[in-house]
Computed example of a mutant assay.
Amino acid sequence: MGTIKETVMNDMNKSRKAGENKYEETLSKYDCALNDEQVAAEVKQLLDEKMAENNNLEVKKFLFGSIELTTLKNTDNDESVMAFTEKVNRFDNDYPELPHVATICVYPCFAAAVKNTLDVEGVNIACVSGSFPSSQALIEVKVAETALAVKDGADEIDIVMPVGKFLCGDYEGVCDDISELKEACGEDVAMKVILETGCLRNTADIKKASILSMYAGADYIKTSTGKEKVSATPEAAYVMCKAMKEYYDQTGRQVGFKPAGGINTVDDALAYYTIVKEVLGEKWLTNKWFRLGTSRLANLLLSEIEGKEIKFF
């Protein structure tokens, strides 16, 4: 007969294995055996064949309306964030014929400053949370930060998937983190899960991380924090969109998509638009379901729309 300690350890191991089996069973419903070179070839062919037709004024206006105007600098303060928000207010008055940006994205400590300054109806307040950008904190700390951001006015929360847990195969830990943070957001506050695709090993990892994040409660999946050397790429976006389409077909639940980090040109934005259009379809081509995490793109798109160089933001 084993000792009490041995019995407890055996029970814990059985529980852990049952949890692992649940997540492996979920992943087994999807094709995660991807080949990086094949994915790259498919993306190149798609963009070569389809991107040019999206290079037009209406698409550029749509893309402008999908921007999450973001300030995540160490030097941010209440005054600078309020001035940043005032630009969105002024834009709505100066360019009434154009769509406004989708959100203003800031650190949680500035949610109240944005809420008290923002006058434009329909622009949401997004906060990065959960120990952004590393996600390396106790879950209690991440939950508290998220709940406080929501209390102060955040309409949307962007968290980072615990990449270290994912890479060592702790899928249960990954999903538990995401689920607890979604619970802190509540049903009315959308939560985006950042996969930090530049830290993942291959496209198979990106597919698995996408599925697990949606399974655990993500309302959006997002490529990157913009804080790593490798941020959004068309290949990562393609795999994520494929995962979203498969997930939607199996569950009926629509999840939004947000490429972020390294979106430096209008062509970059057009590439992501083309991928979403061709893989996910028209249902995702609204600024509710498709977002762009970039600020530098705002002036570039505005300049192309107006036909002259403009530095508004």
Rank of each mutant, 00 (worst) to 15 (best):
V123C: 01
S210C: 10
L297T: 07
Y272S: 04
V143I: 15
M9P: 00
V88R: 00
Y220H: 12
I263Y: 04
E49N: 13
G262E: 07
V279Y: 08
E187G: 12
A260G: 05
K87I: 07
A144H: 09
E228V: 14
S28F: 03
V255H: 10
N35H: 13
T85R: 02
R291G: 11
I139G: 03
D219N: 14
V174I: 05
D92P: 00
E6I: 04
L301W: 10
E180V: 10
A269C: 12
E196H: 05
D76Q: 07
V266M: 08
E86L: 03
A83T: 09
L118S: 03
F110N: 04
S213M: 06
V128Q: 12
I211N: 04
L212V: 08
R16F: 09
V174P: 02
E6Q: 15
S66D: 04
D94S: 05
V189M: 10
E309Q: 06
N10G: 13
D158V: 03
L57Y: 13
P162Y: 07
D31F: 06
L292H: 05
E6C: 03
A216I: 08
S131M: 12
E145R: 02
I125A: 08
E282V: 08
A149M: 06
M82Y: 00
V141R: 00
K192V: 11
N202C: 15
H100N: 15
N77K: 05
S179F: 08
S224C: 10
